[in-house]
Amino acid sequence: MTPDKRSDYWRANLRLLAVLLIIWFIVSFGFGILLVEPLNAISLGGYPLGFWFAQQGSIYIFVVLIFVYAALMGRLDKKFDVEED
């Protein structure tokens, strides 16, 4: 792999990681802490939505983001021809 292609691959990897971390931050900190009061007006499974995000939602979103990251990195690896055999 050429240095330019390696740099492009790394840049794309960091961009993907930054987007996923921002999503996780918004869900965990934003929905679970900052917006908890407005979200508590909505109920999910008998619990206020703000409470749900603070206790379980951010964990579920994190697990989903792990699978999304793995899938998108697989595509990125194929695009840059660095996938594992």
Rank of each mutant, 00 (worst) to 15 (best):
Ala18Gln: 08
Ile22Lys: 01
Phe53Lys: 02
Ile22Met: 13
Glu83Pro: 00
Arg11Cys: 05
Arg15Gln: 11
Arg11Asn: 11
Leu49Thr: 09
Phe51Met: 10
Leu35Asp: 04
Ile61Asp: 02
Ser58Arg: 10
Leu39Gly: 02
Gly57Trp: 02
Gln55Tyr: 06
Leu20Gly: 02
Pro38Ile: 07
Ala70Phe: 08
Asp85Ala: 12
Leu39Ala: 03
Trp10Tyr: 09
Pro38Ala: 04
Ile61Ser: 14
Leu17His: 10
Leu21Ile: 05
Glu37Val: 13
Gly57Arg: 08
Gly46Val: 08
Ser58Trp: 15
Ile66Phe: 11
Phe62Asp: 09
Arg15Lys: 12
Gly45Ser: 10
Ile42Phe: 15
Lys78Gln: 13
Leu34Asn: 04
Ile59Arg: 13
Asp85Glu: 14
Gly30Arg: 03
Ala70Val: 12
Asp8Tyr: 02
Phe25Lys: 04
Arg15Leu: 15
Val27Ala: 15
Asp77Arg: 13
Asn40Ser: 15
Ile61Lys: 03
Ala71Pro: 02
Leu65Trp: 02
Leu16His: 01
Gly74Gln: 06
Asn13Ala: 09
Lys5Pro: 00
Val63Lys: 07
Leu39Pro: 01
Asp77Pro: 00
Ile33Met: 09
Val27Trp: 02
Leu39Thr: 03
Leu35Glu: 10
Asn13Glu: 07
Ile66Val: 15
Asp77His: 14
Ala54Met: 10
Trp52Glu: 07
Phe67Ser: 07
Ala18Cys: 07
Leu72Glu: 06
Gly30Ser: 10
Val36Pro: 00
Gly46Ile: 05
Arg15Thr: 14
Asp81Trp: 00
Ala54Gln: 14
Leu39Asp: 00
Ile26Lys: 01
Asp4Thr: 11
Arg75Leu: 14
Arg6Met: 11
Ser7Asn: 11
Val27Leu: 05
Asp8Ser: 14
Asp8Ile: 00
Phe80Tyr: 15
Trp24Pro: 01
Glu37Pro: 00
Glu83Thr: 05
Pro48Glu: 14
Phe25Gly: 07
Pro3Tyr: 06
Lys79Asp: 10
Phe62Pro: 00
Ile23Ser: 09
Leu14Pro: 00
Glu83Met: 04
Met73Ile: 11
Leu65Ala: 09
Asp81Thr: 06
Val63Gly: 01
Val82Trp: 05
Met73Thr: 08
Asp81Ala: 15
Val82Met: 10
Arg6Phe: 09
Asn40Thr: 07
Asp4Asn: 10
Gly57Met: 04
Leu44Ser: 05
Glu83Asp: 13
Gln55Arg: 12
Leu49Trp: 02
Asn40Val: 07
Trp24Gln: 15
Leu34His: 06
Met1Pro: 04
Leu14Asp: 06
Pro48Phe: 00
Val82Pro: 04
